[in-house]
Amino acid sequence: MRNLLKLFALSVVLIVAGANIYLWGYLPRYRPPPDLNIIYTPELVARGDYLVNEVLLCFDCHSSRDWTQYSGPAIPPLGAGRPCIDENSKPVGINFGSGGFPGRLCIRNITIDEKTGIGAWTDGEIARAIREGVSRNGESLFPIMPWFMYTEMSDEDISAVIAYLRTIPPVQSFRPERKLDFPLNVLTRLHPQPLEGPVPPIDRSDTVIYGRYLSKIARCEFCHSPRVRRSVDPRPGRLMAGGVPFFMGKDMHYSKNLTPHEDGLGEWTKDMFIQRFRLATKPFPVSEEDNSEMNWVEFSGMTDTDLGAIWDYLQTLEPKEMILLDRAD
């Protein structure tokens, strides 16, 4: 019996040791940064400007926001990061459970400052971070950065985004490294998935395919789809079905059902959908409870063609009744 107990104890030690070697020695999964050959042209930078400011809305997360104004516009200097959140922070944004953050998380500076931003990063390192969720040093990014929405972003569009980011004035704005409590420090290492190779341009002439592409990189799916607990994947059968809770001041708001169900977009037309994005083109004073987590002001800059493509894609989804959730996952 004593020998069996020793053997069992040894087995447990070996399993734990093996798991630790795997978690901290082989994860996250990543590949070397891609060798991007970006040729900087005015057209490429203009495309990047459009993507960063009207579609991806990078500054929504990488800048502080003014919630006394409708849509919470980003506060200059744009891209300089925002204050860290921790266990004492007020819950804001998408609701993954009440209470403070389990650890410390700081949204980084994405200006081209070489010491505190991404100025010393290669184009390939920036592309890998955005699309594959791995930092310059090989560390996994916390999935509040929705890299999993950007995995299908074409090399053409990621090059445009990088070209534009290189034009943003550098801002020296230091952000401390994150500290994640268990089990987040382990779970975060499991998510990144390296791309297998180049990502070709999307066929913009097929509006359904292009609309799906835009709905991913504009994070429609991220905010309007309930997620599997402790995963970056949407719940099966609930894609774009809405009901995801967001903290807005003392209130809870819920994302809209974007499927063609009667409590979603079932009674809408394409023109109604497009015109909804034209209702707020400039910020205006508003209480936090009456505000919107969705930055309608910035999204109002999307073209009719792109918004129409998103509509065409959404109309192909299976109609689903909206279910209001207690938390997003």
Rank of each mutant, 00 (worst) to 15 (best):
V208E: 13
S225P: 08
R227Y: 01
Q193M: 15
R189V: 08
L187M: 10
P194D: 15
S225G: 13
P201Q: 02
F222E: 10
S231T: 01
R229N: 05
S215G: 11
L214F: 04
A218P: 00
Q193T: 15
V228G: 07
E221Y: 08
R212S: 06
P194T: 14
L190C: 04
L214C: 06
P192D: 11
R229A: 13
R204M: 08
E221T: 12
S231W: 00
L187N: 06
S215M: 11
R204T: 08
P194A: 11
V232W: 00
K216T: 04
V208Q: 12
R229Y: 08
G197I: 07
V199P: 02
R227T: 03
V186N: 04
Y213G: 03
R229L: 11
T207C: 06
G197H: 09
L195T: 09
H224V: 11
D206T: 08
G197F: 10
T207H: 11
Y213H: 12
C220A: 12
D233R: 10
H191R: 15
Y210F: 14
P200R: 04
G211F: 02
I202S: 02
C223F: 04
P226Q: 02
S215W: 00
H224R: 11
C220G: 02
P194K: 14
I202P: 01
V199Y: 06
R204S: 03
L190W: 07
G197W: 06
I209D: 06
V186Y: 11
K216Y: 14
P226N: 02
V186S: 05
R230D: 15
R229I: 08
R219E: 13
V186I: 15
R230S: 13
L195A: 11
T207E: 15
Q193D: 13
I209Q: 07
Y213R: 11
C223W: 00
T188A: 09
D233G: 02
F222K: 02
V199Q: 08
D206Y: 06
S205Y: 06
T188Y: 02
Y210C: 04
R212H: 09
S215F: 01
L187W: 09
L190M: 14
A218D: 10
I209C: 02
H191W: 13
R227M: 14
I209P: 00
A218R: 00
R204L: 02
D203R: 03
V199A: 03
R229E: 13
T188W: 04
L214Y: 04
E221Q: 14
P201H: 03
R219S: 14
R229M: 07
D206M: 04
F222L: 15
D233S: 14
G211A: 10
C220I: 05
P192H: 15
R230E: 09
T188E: 09
V208Y: 07
I209F: 03
L187V: 10
D206I: 07
I202T: 12
L187G: 03
S215Y: 01
T188I: 10
L214V: 06
I209R: 15
C220S: 11
T188G: 07
R219K: 14
V232R: 01
Y210H: 10
R227W: 01
C223S: 12
Y210E: 03
S225K: 00
I217E: 06
Y213S: 07
L187Y: 08
P192L: 14
L190T: 14
H191T: 13
S205N: 14
E221K: 07
T188C: 05
S205L: 05
A218I: 01
V186H: 05
S231A: 15
E221N: 09
P226E: 01
V199M: 05
Q193W: 11
R219D: 12
